[in-house]
Design a protein around this nucleic acid. Structure first.
Lengths: 228, 228
DNA sequence: CCAGTATACTTGTCTGACGATTTGGCGACG
DNA sequence: CGTCGCCAAATCGTCAGACAAGTATACTGG
């Protein structure tokens, strides 16, 4: 019952709106990993032409949020352990550079502080999506504050995959969000103290933790489904 | 298991071929910065349909090799000084991580050595394009050897813009390519010695030099055209 | 000479279609 | 009975043509 796509706010164009919507559904885990997304299906669900749907899928594929090869239908990927490691290696590369740059001028991004507040607020209830959103927003703000268009662009792509992977584990969360909050605070403190070394070290620790959480969840899931 | 059984040397699809061709023309400077690329023009020149040309332009835009906003014609960008700095900041971020990783295992990429040989060979004559190609190939090999798909992808995008900018200065080259060759050798040596610190330091020095060369050429060009 | 409008150009999107490729099932053969 | 090859369906790649909407430019009037 979507009716007419008369929502002309936000995204200027139809393609943009379509892209945003599908992207959201993917990273939020509404579309399960492994699920097929044909051009025709998208075109049908949103009442758009197939070329429009095609453009959307191609964009998502370029960002790593979909996998597809020529003449095969796109599927939502499920990152295996080695890919999660690769993802976090690149993520660490980008974010280390970011926090180092910020610490050098002792610049604490206001947006990151705001995201921290939002995360603390969401830690109480079980608003998973909100927690993940706030986490993403925190790291995003960190990199954005550096002011490098290209660094931010790279980071955006990486965070997309991170979001996707986190979204797929939503149901099985196991860690207390306050741990994450404290790790974030450590990073901000090091930046505020103008200590690049410590900031990088804290960041690396935080990302190692996060990566570990994902990997262990992945493993648990695998043994679980092997038992069936 | 996943490898394409066919080594289709030519691009498998039409869009691919079109993209490759236009990309080459842009980074080689055949299409001057500021020049307009309309969908219709591309479609006409290559005898393809407009949607195909459109897809091509969109891909190039996503890679930063074209600039365009909604309902406006795509143009080949000319990076100004601040953008060159931004580009090299991101480049340094990625490549520093790469050489550090390689040095940690003292892995000297054979492809990088090969690219060095090619560069030395091209240093004699005035094959500019070849020199630039070899330079790009060297850095590309460096990052590829790390084995991180995502790092390589980010680097590919960055190198595209680097290639573009270098290509635009082709006519005015002023530096002896042997300088570059020696800087490259220093980096490889540090990697071979298993010394991440020195490798990173050599790399940073090299990139600073390269960036300086680009910026000074840009300035010279500007004062030159201001005199008219 | 400036401003405002009108026209031409370009892009965004849609409809519809045809060829090419992959996929999955079905029957034939060893 | 199992394996192989072939045919049909599904899906994608590409194309053509068309209309709407936005942008840039030129022209006209003040």
């Amino acid at each position: 019952m979507d009716g007419q796509p008369s929502f002309s706010l936000g995204p200027s164009s139809l393609t943009e709106a379509l892209y945003e919507s599908v992207r959201k559904r993917i990273v939020n885990g509404e579309i399960a990993p492994g699920e097929k997304l044909t051009e025709i299906r998208i075109a049908g669900e949103y009442s758009v032409a197939r070329p429009t749907a095609k453009a959307c899928l191609e964009r998502l594929t370029a960002l790593g949020l979909l996998r597809r090869t020529t003449h095969k239908t796109a599927v939502v990927p499920k990152l295996d352990e080695s890919e999660i490691r690769d993802l976090y290696f690149s993520r660490e590369t980008v974010e280390r550079a970011a926090v180092a740059a910020l610490a050098r001028t002792a610049t604490v991004p206001p947006d990151a502080v705001r995201a921290q507040a939002a995360m603390k607020a969401a830690a109480g209830d079980m608003a998973f999506a909100s927690q993940v959103e706030a986490d993403i927003a925190f790291h995003s703000a960190l990199v954005a504050a550096v002011g490098s268009r290209r660094l931010s662009r790279m980071h955006e792509v990486i965070l997309g995959e991170v979001h996707l992977t986190m979204g797929q584990f939503q149901a099985h969360r196991t860690t207390h969000p306050m741990n994450v909050v404290h790790e974030h605070d450590d990073i901000l403190k090091a930046i505020g103290d103008g200590d690049p070394e410590r900031a990088q070290q804290r960041l690396t620790h935080h990302l190692d933790q996060a990566q570990g959480r994902l990997v262990s969840q992945l493993r648990r899931e695998q043994t679980e489904e092997a038992r069936t």
